[in-house]
Amino acid sequence: MATNQNSVERVDDAVVRSFARAAVLAALMGAAAVVGSIPIPFSPVPVSLGVLVVYLMGLYLGPVWGPASVGLYLTAGAVGLPVFANGASGIGVLVGDSAGYLWAYPIAALVIGTLIHGRGKLENPAETSIPVLAVALLTALTIIYALGTVWLGYVLKVSMIEAVNLAVVPFIPGDLLKIVATIVIVKGGRIDPT
């Protein structure tokens, strides 16, 4: 049997720490897509917690590792882990009807991370004011809706208005609720990523 003899190139400690968090949060997102889902009043669609984890990735991992974490989630789903909504998986989902939302997630995490942390060191998001948090999260949600709708309209050949009716309107109450919940989590200050 052939043996390989290479010297070991250690990964930097700071990278290991951020990478471990990114990987575990990607798994949390996959778990939330299956286990979470809470019925809410005045809406036929229960709230799934997947997007909530995207917000948390941007807030707690920052503009570099937040999108990287979403990237891990998408790759894991593409190669067959049941991490997409309701336990779906496969590359097909990444070009299917809801693909626009999925591709918007890394951008959303990037935007939140950049608006909250800037380009410098990771800060504790609990110190950010509520209006800034709300603006960052609503911007992210808008990006997710925009890409999701445009892709759905293209791939299913329906008009923009029909796409909005099919894929945005039923989810608005739940998504606003998740933004409020995210702000509550951040302001609770139990977790300090620094």
């Binding site: 949390l28 778990a31 939330a32 979470g36 809470i38 948390l56 509550v184 609770g188």
Partner: peptide, 8 residues
Amino acid sequence: VSTIGMLG
């Protein structure tokens, strides 16, 4: 939602 999110 916030309790599940925070504990998770």
